[in-house]
Amino acid sequence: MLEVKNLRAKIEGKEILKGLSMKVNPGEVHAIMGPNGSGKSTLASVLAGNEDFEVSEGTVSYKGENLLEMEPDVRSHKGVFLAFQYPVEIPGVSNINFLKAAINERREAHGQEPITAKEFLKRVKEKASLVELDNKLTNRSVNEGFSGGEKKRNEIFQMAMLDPTLCILDETDSGLDIDALKIVANGVNQLRSKDRSFIIVTHYQRLLDYIVPDFVHVLYDGKIVKTGGKELALELEEKGYDWIKEEQNPVEA
C-alpha cells in the first residue's frame, strides 16, 4: 500500500527526515515511536502533504502512485487520512457541512453522485456513536470550543466518515485521559480491516496497550533505527529511549 524510500525532508532549511524507509501492507498497523524531535510528526505531515515541509530526496509510493506529487485534497480522495496532533479550530465552518462537502468532493473525484441527505445523516449517527461524540458537537463549528479529548474524538469521527485506506494518527493519545484514550482506541479498533492500514505516531507505549500494532518502528534522528513487533514498544516503555541513543552514538556514550 505504502512504500517510503530514503525520504529526506526539511523545514525552514533544517533537515528533519534523513533517509527514512518503510513499507506498509494492507491491513497492517505500524507504530512509529521515538524521542521528541526525532521526526515522527514530520513524517506524518509529509505523508499528508503539508507544504511547510520540503522533500529533498526519496520517494513515497502509495497504491503504486507518486504520493508526493499530489495536493493534500487529492491524497485524501485516494484514501489518505491524517488525524492531527493539534486539530485546528475553524470558527464559522460547521463540522457537518464541511464533512459533507469533503465527502462529495471525494465522490466527485471518483465519478460518483453526491451523497443523499438521508444516507449522510445515517452515516453521521453511526460514526459519531463509534467515538461517543455528542450530536451537538457534530453540528458545531470545526473544533471550536472543543475540549482536548473532544477534538481527538472528532478526528477519529472524521476518519470514520471519510472511510480512508491509510490512516495516519499523529500523537492522537497526547493530552488524553485514560477514559478518552480508551474511547479513541476503541473507535480505531473498530475501523481496523484487512484493507485498511494504520500508521500510529506516538511517544508513549500507552496507546499501544489498546491498539495493538503489527510492527513497531523506532525513529531516531530522522531515520528508522529499529523495527520489531509489539514487544519492542514494551521494551521502550521499560528502558526509555536512552539505550537507542547510545546504540546510535556509541562514541558519546
Binding site: E51, S76, P87, V88, F98, A101, A109
Partner: peptide, 13 residues
C-alpha cells in the same frame, strides 16, 4: 493552517 486542515479532509484549496 485551517486551509491545510480542510484540504487533508478532501476539500480543494
Amino acid at each position: 493552517e485551517a486551509i491545510y486542515y480542510l484540504q487533508t479532509r478532501g476539500v480543494p484549496k
